[in-house]
C-alpha cells in the first residue's frame, strides 16, 4: 500500500468515526474530481455544485459501507454517476445552455502557461461544444463517456462504477461514440473528406 493510500485510509477511518476534520481532507482531495463529473453530466455549473454537495453528504453517511478493498475514488465516482443520472431523469425540462458562462472561480486551463486571449476563447468554445455533444447522450451513456475520457477508466472500472457488466459498457461506449461522431459532423458539416492516417494507405 502506498503512503498516499495509507493516508487516505486513515482519513476514511477517521471520518467513519465521525471525525469531520478527517472528512474535510477527503472533501478537499476529491472535490475537483466529483465536480468535474457533475458538470460534464449536468452541464449547468450551479446544479453541478449542488450535486457535488449532495454527493459528499451521501458519501459521508455511507462511509461505513465502503469496501476497503475497492478504490475509494471509484466508489465515490460511482455514487456521483448514479446521483447525476437520477437527477437528469428527474428533470422536467432539458436544461441546455450552449452560452453557459464559466463557473465563477473555475478555470478550464490545463497548462501552467498563461494562454493568449484568443487561445482562451477557442478553448472556451471547444469546451462548450464538447458539453453540447455530451448533452445529446442519454444519462447512462453520458456517464460511461465521462468516466472513459475524463478519468481514463477501463471497461472494468466503468462497469464497477456504474454497477453493470463490461459488455454493457463496451456497447454503450461504442454506440455513444457513433452518435457523438454523427452529431459532431452535423455541427461542423465538413465537405471535404477527412485526412486519413497515412499508415492506412500503405499496401
Amino acid at each position: 500500500m502506498s503512503e498516499q493510500d495509507a493516508t487516505l485510509l486513515e482519513w476514511i477511518e477517521g471520518a467513519s468515526s465521525g471525525n469531520q476534520e478527517a472528512f474535510a481532507e477527503i472533501v478537499y482531495s476529491f472535490t475537483d474530481a466529483v465536480y468535474n463529473l457533475c458538470y460534464r453530466m449536468l452541464t449547468e455549473s450551479t446544479e453541478a455544485e449542488d450535486a457535488t454537495q449532495e454527493i459528499f453528504l451521501k458519501a459521508y453517511h455511507h462511509l461505513k459501507s465502503y469496501d476497503r478493498e475497492r478504490s475509494f475514488k471509484t466508489w465515490l465516482l460511482s455514487i456521483s454517476s448514479n446521483h447525476c443520472i437520477d437527477r437528469i431523469r428527474k428533470r422536467r425540462m432539458h436544461l441546455v445552455s450552449i452560452d453557459e458562462p464559466l463557473p465563477s472561480g473555475a478555470t478550464l486551463e490545463l497548462s501552467s502557461d498563461a494562454p493568449l486571449p484568443e487561445e482562451l476563447t477557442l478553448r472556451r468554445e471547444q469546451s462548450l461544444m464538447i458539453q453540447s455533444l455530451l448533452d445529446e447522450l442519454q444519462p447512462d451513456y453520458r456517464a460511461a463517456v465521462v468516466l472513459r475520457y475524463w478519468y481514463d477508466y477501463s471497461y472494468t472500472e466503468i462497469a464497477e462504477a456504474l454497477n453493470t457488466t463490461e459488455s454493457a459498457i463496451k456497447s454503450r461506449l461504442f454506440r455513444a461514440r457513433q452518435m457523438l461522431a454523427d452529431y459532431y459532423d452535423a455541427q461542423h458539416a465538413k465537405q471535404t473528406p477527412r485526412s486519413v492516417n497515412p499508415r492506412l494507405r500503405e499496401g
Partner: peptide, 27 residues
C-alpha cells in the same frame, strides 16, 4: 477517421475545476 477525430476532441477536453469555496460549502 471520423471516429478518431471525435476521440481526439473528447480526449483533449479539460477538467472543469470546482469553485474555490465549494469544499468549504460542503463542510
Amino acid at each position: 477517421a471520423r471516429l478518431e477525430t471525435l476521440d481526439n476532441v473528447l480526449a483533449s477536453a479539460p477538467h472543469a475545476r470546482a469553485p474555490q469555496r465549494l469544499a468549504i460549502t460542503i463542510m
